[in-house]
Amino acid sequence: MRWISIGLGLAVTGVIGFFAVRELLIDPLYFFELFLGGLTRGSIYALIALGYTMVYGIIQLINFAHGEIYMIGAMTALIVASVLGLWGWNTAVIAILAFVFAIVYSCAYGFTVEKIAYKPLRHAPRLSALISAIGMSLFLQNYVMLAQTPEYLPFRTLIPDFHFWEPYAHIITSVELTIIITTVIVMILLGILIKFTRIGKAMRATAQDKVMAALLGINVNNVISATFVVGSATAAIGGVLIACHVGQINFFIGFLAGLKAFIAAVLGGIGSIPGAVLGSLVLGISESYFTGYFWSEYEDVFAFSILVLILIFRPSGILGKHDAQKV
């Protein structure tokens, strides 16, 4: 069995490698463009997937309302940018304030959602919290639809076309460049937060053993809240960036984005932060190549097929730890 899977894996890798090299030689620019497109998409998935994976790492909950936090971030940025735009403020100031407000609002929502929907259920069966998360997701979607509008809203980009970038704009747009750079910065900051700060240490301790952490004097409730806040902040950044990229938002954008990011998190090994980033990049880049070289009709089918395949051979994801758990 073991030799069969290794052989199969090698065969698949070989076939993919052969086609990749062939396409690279035929049209290197196109190959590279698709790679960058996939990198952008993967970066966005990664910003959202982090929230899923961090929350799962700490309280073993799939926070299905996370996609909605991303949507609320984008909505807030749109409202702030429109109001400040009416007052005629400077574009750079608007962009910064829109980001700040989006992050603050999303964090507030993430924090509140945890307190209302998950904290009372912390000792209930896992399924109850999961249902609560799905309910929260539906609630937030419908709340935004009723409080704002069901229609698509134009989102005028906060990131202008950089003049110095004009010669390369046909390969990768200024917005895409910003997305990739921002994601890298956020990842580095998050790494520092988790590795070197007190709260990061507390998060790791809580993830390993909640009871022991509490016995040692860590306020577990605060750590869990902090995890939701950090996850929401990265989702808000993702929300604003992708809204700048596609130029429109509505109440429903969180669903598909959240679903894809969730797949990415599972792909990389849910609970693992490097895994979420790796899973997102693998998903984004392979989707991009699939659309570019095969048929975009089956892009989602392909994304889910990768998930199924990886879970057959590595049930806990690419970088996941082995322990049998039910979702």
Partner: peptide, 16 residues
């Protein structure tokens, strides 16, 4: 080609 309605990003199809 067909695309998915409401997808996060359409840059691959645009490159195509």
């Amino acid at each position: 080609e067909g695309v998915t309605t409401g997808a996060v990003d359409y840059s691959a199809i645009v490159q195509k």
